[in-house]
Design a binder for these strands. Structure first.
Lengths: 235, 235
DNA sequence: CGAAATGTTGACTATATTCAAGGCAAGTGG
DNA sequence: CCACTTGCCTTGAATATAGTCAACATTTCG
């Protein structure tokens, strides 16, 4: 995984440090909770393979997905020691996580400023993903939101595999997940998704997403730039 | 400012480091841009006094406010060196900023792991504010969103002054800002605000916000906990 | 004092939600 | 192997929340 173009190469000392802090691997099946909302002293994790998502819920059950987690994402920086988790994390596929003790966060900063810096960067980067979503949910129409989501997820997933163009990328979300990520109702999500698909902009089937007209989607989403995800550190 | 309960006390060495990296003070009047959307290599800032906000816009002018910045907030971690700013920052009042060179971020990590750790924490904390807003915008009704915003801003502003209960707190936002922060239209924001005010939940006047019935607002917003903002580092 | 920005309100419209019903595919247990 | 359940997708109809348009009041500021 470290060999992918998406990830920086790190120095031996950095890798050793991270290895030494790693507690164990953890495997979860689809639809399992990694962190419960409100859980105290949850450990830190790196997602090694599979998909997951962070979310919050209101007391009557309304749910908002905050962002999707793919291989390489670092999980749990938000809570201070002793804090309750402000959001839950749940898997979208079978997934493998790398588990760290809560105080590893401090150990990493103390023993490797460069890795500490990387963690700051990863955190800031995740925030900017949430910023993007907030712009979508606050100011884009349903069509635009969906176009945006498809493009962003496609780009992120494509960066983790070789030939996304032909084979598409994995798409383990149900329409309910899409709805909860975009602040839409399930029904409206379905109708909008179908509309875009009928227009030939994309296709979803067999758990995979195929982009049929990225340009049109990008125009819809008012999205510029090549949008290739930036090269990033991997803890 | 450092003497406020809201802020941690830092060691002399840490403060010295920060002082040595500080370039200068910068004063801006109301409604001025601190960072333009798309600006490259913007410096880092700490907001010393006054209010500001981060935002993004779509090409047709629709604007989403990502969060509000109050004294003590650290600005600009999101962009990597050489990157374009993904969001703009603009003042809501006259404001004073403390300016740092872009590479201070790395210097802080290198020379003081504990301050590096603090920056990670501040970044993660800001993300969790955006998370909260995303939940509001995605899943709360207009009334609920406004209740939420009023409570959160009140608590943050109250933590920076002595007796918020009687005097209220400064409230420099126009209704357009409220609308842009919550993903609502200006007109609907106005009507909802008036409705809550007529019900006696709050009062806004002369640029100040007075809470008349925090309990009712908290119930509306489905918000638990004492919600006192956590003690935080100050860079 | 006049211009510009902000706040307020009513009427109309539209986007998105809710309700309801049915289809399809996969999994389960008899 | 087949009935039955369950989860997910799909669609139409009725409804509601929020947006748009328009006009006017009020405040701020040069």
């Amino acid at each position: 995984m470290r060999s992918l173009d998406l990830f920086q190469t790190h120095e031996a000392a950095e890798l050793e440090l991270v290895q030494s802090l790693k507690r164990r691997d953890m495997r979860l099946a689809v639809g399992q909770a990694l962190i419960q909302e409100g859980q105290v002293d949850a450990p830190l994790y790196t997602l090694q393979s599979g998909w997951a998502f962070r979310f919050k819920t209101l007391s009557d059950g309304r749910r908002q997905i905050l962002n999707f987690l793919l291989a390489g994402d670092f999980i749990g920086v938000q809570q201070k020691m002793g804090d309750a988790a402000a959001h839950g994390v749940e898997t979208l596929t079978d997934a493998v996580f790398c588990v760290f003790q809560r105080d590893s966060l401090w150990e990493i900063h103390r023993r490797s400023p460069s890795m500490g810096f990387n963690i700051t960067w990863l955190t800031a980067h995740e925030e900017s993903l949430v910023d993007d979503t907030l712009l979508s949910v606050g100011r884009r129409s349903a069509e635009e939101r969906i176009a945006m989501l498809l493009i962003l997820l496609f780009k992120r997933a494509a960066a983790l595999q070789a030939d996304a163009g032909a084979k598409g990328v994995p798409f383990p979300l149900t329409q309910q997940h899409v709805a909860d990520a975009l602040g839409l109702s399930l029904v409206h999500t379905n109708k909008t998704l179908r509309k875009l698909e009928r227009r030939g902009l994309h296709h979803i089937g067999d758990g995979r997403l195929y982009m049929r007209d990225v340009k049109a989607l990008a125009r819809l989403a008012d999205l510029y730039g090549d949008g290739r995800p930036p090269v990033r550190p991997l803890v």
